[in-house]
Amino acid sequence: MTDARGGSAVDRGWTWDPTLYAGSAAHYAVGRVPYPPQVVTALVGALGLDGTGTLLDVGCGPGSLTLPMAPHVARAIGVDADADMLAEAEDLARRWGVANTEWVRLRAEDLPAGLPRVDVVTFAQSFHWTDRPRVAAAVRGLLLPGGALVHVHATTHRGLDASEDAGQPLPHPRPPWPAVTDLVRRYLGPRPRAGRSVLPDTAGGDEEAVYRAAGFTGPQRLVVPGPVVVRSAEEVLAAVHSLSGAAPHLFGDRLGAFDADLRRLLAGASDDGRFSERLRDVVLDVWR
């Protein structure tokens, strides 16, 4: 979940706890739109990947970026604090026949934690949850000479609002995201939830200053246009539960009622249960 207000959750006084994404792993794998293939193509070219070297994906979730990048390195290591996310990643790796991956349960703040030095480190929608100065410094020490850090700016749970989208008309209705947000608030309250607490309202800094303070130079910026995707109602429901602010455990014994209300809302927004939306561009910042 990208923090739209800038900075990081930690910058704003929030404290991590292990329930942050509790119950979300299976929903994440279904509800988040895969990164476009052009993301991998762009990174392979910019980083000169040739099937050698080691990649470390920090906050890997169910391997959303680790798995498509793995064929281009000798060894891909995904680390995440959520055991269910790693189990999902391991299952997907097995199903996809990706044999050069390793999955380590680890908070980013505990790096290097005995991991080897690596050629590439990636943060794909994860850096904002960390103690960024501490983690950036640790990653700097993990990189081999000539290595690179890649910060992926993306929003994969939903697309552009109608007011933001100047592209061609879509083949199906957009998911009714404003109404979905209102429904979540009806059940969970107006403050965004995150684990056992809520996110404070004050803003933080920006990651560019953090990376520079840790000794990185750059960035080299690559932009991959967001595609138009078609999604089912169940994929939209999964996208909602893939968010920390709507993780299944937050609803307690009202989860069934919420899901029923959400399905009714989605059924009323599309006659055939299909939705279209244009995703935001994926921006890749390569730091050296």
Rank of each mutant, 00 (worst) to 15 (best):
A81C: 07
W16H: 14
A87G: 07
A99D: 09
H153L: 13
R132A: 14
H241W: 06
G48I: 02
G23R: 13
G48A: 07
Y211K: 00
V58W: 00
P62S: 06
L266Y: 04
A76R: 12
R185C: 07
A25E: 01
I77G: 09
P200M: 07
V39R: 10
G245Y: 12
T15L: 14
T130C: 14
T66I: 03
V44I: 11
L279A: 01
S270Q: 12
L67V: 03
E109M: 03
L262W: 04
V79I: 15
S232Q: 07
V10H: 12
M1K: 11
Y28A: 03
G141L: 08
L67W: 07
L255D: 10
R105M: 14
T217V: 05
R264E: 15
R107Q: 15
Y211A: 11
P173K: 13
E88Q: 12
R212V: 12
T15P: 01
R274A: 05
S197F: 11
A9C: 09
P145E: 04
S126G: 11
S197Y: 04
R231D: 01
A22L: 14
V58H: 04
M85S: 13
G167A: 07
V228G: 02
V44K: 12
P145K: 08
E208W: 05
P169V: 06
V198T: 15
D17N: 15
A4L: 15
R263Q: 12
T130Y: 06
P18M: 06
G23P: 13
G61T: 03
P36A: 07
R174T: 10
P173V: 08
V223G: 01
V73E: 07
L160W: 02
A42L: 08
H241T: 10
P112N: 05
P36E: 02
V210G: 02
C60L: 02
V224W: 04
D57S: 03
V30M: 08
G23M: 07
A99Y: 00
P178M: 08
A154Q: 05
L142P: 08
L56D: 00
L67N: 03
A233E: 10
Y187T: 03
A148F: 05
R94G: 06
V120M: 03
H27Q: 06
T156F: 03
V135A: 04
D50N: 09
L47F: 00
S232Y: 02
P145C: 05
G268S: 05
V210Y: 07
A136T: 04
R12Q: 11
T15R: 14
R134T: 12
V118N: 09
R107E: 13
P227M: 03
N100Y: 00
D165E: 09
G252Q: 12
D17Y: 09
G51F: 00
D281L: 14
G159Y: 05
D3L: 15
A99Q: 08
V184P: 09
G6C: 13
D57V: 01
Q38T: 07
D119V: 08
V152K: 10
W16Y: 15
G141N: 09
W96S: 12
L222D: 02
L243D: 06
D50M: 05
D271H: 12
L149F: 08
V150P: 06
V104F: 06
R212W: 01
A113M: 04
Q220W: 00
A74I: 00
D253A: 15
A89C: 07
D110E: 15
F216I: 06
L92H: 00
D165S: 13
Y187M: 04
Q38K: 13
G61S: 07
R274Y: 11
D271S: 15
